[in-house]
Simulated scan of single mutants.
Amino acid sequence: MTTHDQSEVLARVARGLLYSESEAAFQSGLRRSDLIFEYNHTPPGEAARRRDLLERILGSVGERTVLLPPFHAGFGSNVHLGDDFFGNVNLTFVDDVEIRIGHGVMIAPGVTLTTTGHPVHPDLRVDFGRYSEPVVVEDKVWIGSNAVVLPGVRVGHGSVIGAGSVVTRDIPPMTVAVGVPCRPVREITEEDLKERQEIR
């Protein structure tokens, strides 16, 4: 594939249009599969080694980042994590394009963040036809266990995504959102600061 052809494919990807596995094969060098395997098999006591691997795997990684193994990523290099990030076990990044996660984000076990979907008509899924749109998780978000965030979604600052939710559209800042499909159910307010606090 020529450089011109590659540029044309990348332009389609950037616009959220369909592309195939064969067309995207030139990006295979950006995959960090071997490093992800190594990270997932690194003993818990080797924190410095884990950090070094994470810096080599991800597009960028903030300070005081915890990502418990195993985690999974199509590329790894398209994932960007902010400071004070906590990702629990079995976090999956389908990162054919960028996944950007802000500061102070907490993600529970079994969550999937996917930038990629497939067309409904089977004739368009030949050669694994697909489309990709970036995912953004803003600062101080908490995502509950087994939630799925779909392509093109932005989760707003401070929001909470309930366990088992399927997030198909943007979630406003400072809201609790739950369900399939995920919908905001209420705002997060000053009253929530009293939660599980002793009353004196």
Rank of each mutant, 00 (worst) to 15 (best):
L10V: 14
D84A: 11
H118I: 06
E133P: 01
R51T: 09
R50W: 00
P172C: 07
N90D: 09
E98D: 13
Q27W: 14
V61M: 09
S7I: 15
R12E: 05
I143L: 00
M174S: 11
A73D: 10
R130D: 02
G104S: 14
A177P: 05
F75K: 03
N146T: 05
E187P: 02
E38P: 09
L53G: 01
P69C: 02
E8R: 13
P43R: 00
E63D: 12
V155T: 03
P173V: 01
T189P: 02
V126N: 09
L18K: 15
R186H: 07
P134G: 05
H72I: 10
H41L: 07
V135C: 04
G129A: 15
A147I: 00
C182V: 13
V167Q: 02
V111T: 08
G158V: 12
D83L: 08
G144E: 00
A108C: 12
E23V: 08
I171R: 05
V153T: 05
D95S: 11
E38H: 03
R49S: 04
L91Q: 10
V178G: 02
G110S: 12
E23R: 13
S165Q: 05
F37S: 02
A108P: 07
A108N: 14
S33R: 03
P44K: 00
E23Q: 12
N88H: 11
L10P: 15
R64S: 08
G76K: 01
V89P: 04
A147L: 01
V9E: 03
G162Y: 05
S77T: 15
Y19N: 09
F26D: 00
H41V: 03
S7E: 13
R186Y: 06
T168W: 06
Y131L: 04
R51S: 07
R51F: 03
H121F: 07
S165F: 05
L91N: 08
E46W: 02
I143F: 01
G62A: 08
T115H: 08
T168E: 04
E191M: 09
D95P: 06
L35K: 03
D83N: 15
R32K: 13
S159V: 14
Y19D: 05
G156D: 04
S165H: 04
N146H: 10
T65E: 00
I171A: 04
L10A: 14
H80Y: 12
F128R: 07
E198W: 12
G156T: 00
G129T: 13
V141R: 02
G102A: 15
T42S: 03
V141S: 02
R32M: 12
E198Y: 14
R32Q: 15
V61D: 01
G144A: 01
M174D: 13
G179S: 11
P119F: 15
A25S: 15
R125Q: 03
F85H: 05
G16D: 14
I101N: 06
W142K: 00
S132P: 01
L68A: 04
E195L: 13
V178K: 10
V176Y: 07
V97F: 12
D192M: 06
R15H: 13
T92S: 13
C182M: 10
V120R: 11
